[in-house]
Amino acid sequence: MGPAAPDFAGDVQDAAELRTIRHDTFAITRTVAAPPHAVFEAFSDAALRARWFRLPGRTVSARHDFAVDGGETASSRYTAVGTAPQTLEYASRYLDIVPDARIVYTYTSAVDGIRRWASLVTVELHPDNSGTRLLWTEQAAFLAPSAEPEHDLPHLRGATRLRLNGLAAALKPT
């Protein structure tokens, strides 16, 4: 008898959930009042990145290795009004890095140990008269819907916009 077959279902509990995966793509363009090399540094430098890229709630752990085949892991505890505390987890892997121009990576997000979505993200940095035109393109596969699945994509898109607002704020001169 050979080794056991791998469990490819991951966090999926039954076959019906396998058929409910939803795919969405969105793009956000943002002009940042800093040159491309400074915006790139905000992604690559762990201390600067921590100023704008974090999970909601109280950070439990964070690690960042900005290199092709490196990645980032983070977890936090979050409590929304009227809900029980939740554990949030993020794990990424960098696939392509072109200094001052492009970053391509994948990531997964989990809530209380259930992988909710996986995404492929491409961040493009283009010189612009007023700094950098950043183009964020994200292709998401929602693996386990929330209680209100119609809000999953708007939530992800809105959280990304907020995060990019934080990026712009982190790059402002103090």
Score class of each variant (00 low, 15 high):
F43K: 10
V104K: 14
K172N: 12
H151M: 11
L55W: 05
D128K: 05
A33I: 00
R157V: 08
V39K: 10
W117K: 14
D14Q: 13
V12L: 10
S130I: 06
G57T: 02
A42H: 03
L162R: 07
V39D: 01
G10D: 08
G166N: 07
A9V: 12
R77L: 13
F43H: 10
A91R: 14
E138K: 05
T87M: 14
S92D: 09
I97W: 10
H151S: 05
I21S: 05
V32P: 01
I21N: 01
R77K: 14
V81S: 11
F8H: 15
G71Q: 07
T108W: 00
A91F: 13
S76H: 00
R49H: 06
P145E: 11
P127A: 08
L135G: 05
E148Q: 09
H126F: 13
S75K: 01
T73Y: 00
M1F: 09
N129L: 07
S61R: 11
F142A: 13
S76L: 04
P149W: 00
I97K: 12
G57S: 01
Y107A: 07
Y107E: 08
S44Y: 05
T174V: 15
K172V: 06
T59Y: 00
D11Q: 14
S146N: 02
F142N: 12
A140W: 02
G158F: 02
V60A: 08
L88M: 05
A91H: 12
H126T: 08
E124K: 15
E148V: 06
T106Y: 08
A67H: 13
A50V: 08
G70E: 01
A33S: 05
V98H: 07
R63G: 15
V111T: 11
I114N: 05
V60Q: 11
Y105E: 06
T25S: 15
R93W: 13
S44W: 04
A110H: 06
A91S: 09
F26R: 15
V81I: 10
F40G: 07
T31N: 06
D128L: 04
T87K: 05
Y90Q: 04
Q86S: 09
